[in-house]
Nucleic acid binder design. Sequence first.
DNA 1: TCTGGGGTCCTAGGACCC
DNA 2: TCTGGGGTCCTAGGACCC
Length: 416
Amino acid sequence: MEKIIFHIDVNSAYLSWEAVYRLQQGDELDLRTIPSAVGGDPVKRHGIILAKSLPAKPYKIQTGESLMAAFQKCPFLTVVPPHYDLYLRSSNALIELIGEYSAQIQRYSIDECFVDFTDMVALFGDPIETAHVIRERIKRELGFTVSIGISSNKLLAKVASDLKKPDAVTTLFPEEIATKMWPLPVEELFMVGRATVPKLNFLGIETIGDLANYDLEVLKTALKSHGVLIWNYANGIENSDVKKSNRLAIKSIGNSSTIPFDIDNRREAHLMLLSLSEMVAMRLRDSQYLARLVSVSYKTHAFNSTGHQKKFEIPTDHTSEIYGYAKKLFDEIWDGTPIRHLGVRVSEFCENDFVQLHLFDEFTTQKNNRLDRVIDELRGRFEPKAIMRGSFIGSGIKPMTGGVGEDDFPLMSSIL
DNA sequence: TCTGGGGTCCTAGGACCC
DNA sequence: TCTGGGGTCCTAGGACCC
């Protein structure tokens, strides 16, 4: 039987949520009605556009571009800083509402989800009408708009939701592929990014239809497995299930940050690594995993990036050990070039079963373990700053760097 | 116009073993 | 001494997503 899949996408999510919140707080102005954007702080060198309003679109404001560039195009652009807590709460409210229509929901990102509606047709009736009911309810009850795509698989549903924005419901069933999807430029296809477009253009492929009808063998030679993937997508072939999101399915945990100033000495670099390790390790303990692989990466002032990683015999979730590894890895590769951006990531997880905790070095392990958990608890109960290492005072570096905690869910890079 | 931060997956080359 | 090929593990780097 053919499946019925919805893809639900919040229109200009960060900006919409910001606008709704401000209206609720009594603001007169609706950010969505003027050229506006959510953006970072240029002084801290985080200055890019994260989301833009519809009225900002005619000015060709692009997500990801620098605020400076945006102001050049639209000098009176209103830019507000991001509030990730608010976005997480808004996202949760959305998922809760959608949950009334199906239990089969895959959160794909903070502002997108897939819904398997196949078994719900018997209960709610026509999928298109139901999608409109959901769309209307979200607008009325939550105050923002969504675009809903409907098809028989996730890929087509996702493409469909993109066809009409904002506040719309669009179908893209297999028989509609040739008319609705094939005329689109190939860069609109999921998984065709910056690096692939020129390669496809070189082969004479300009539209999704060109790709769909191209010789698969030639494509395979030129683009390997990625070529096969996007050829299938161009033909609407994709058959993965809507997987209920499971936080324990996460494969890695990392935090990274652009430092407001270039770091040119080992001491400050280590302090920054400690700050990042604190957050990574806390999230790791919260995930109930131990990690075997620690990676460190950095970007230089000139934007060259380098990384180094190593597997360790004994899986851990201790802040002190992760920091120790990170520091060692960093020292092995850094040549003194001024650093703009630093990151720490852990992966290769195994369960943190009780047994594993005292296999080796019982005393230190248990001591470290208790210390980490007490700190986690205090930080959870009060605020992260409740426990702060003295070395950070006056350093210009925050005692913990990075975000995403309790409510994180895995974001898949490819629909599968 | 100097370009965030969170992820996943793939590939290529070298080491090592049989 | 020089020769072969296959498998697996490890690491760096890059492509893609939102």
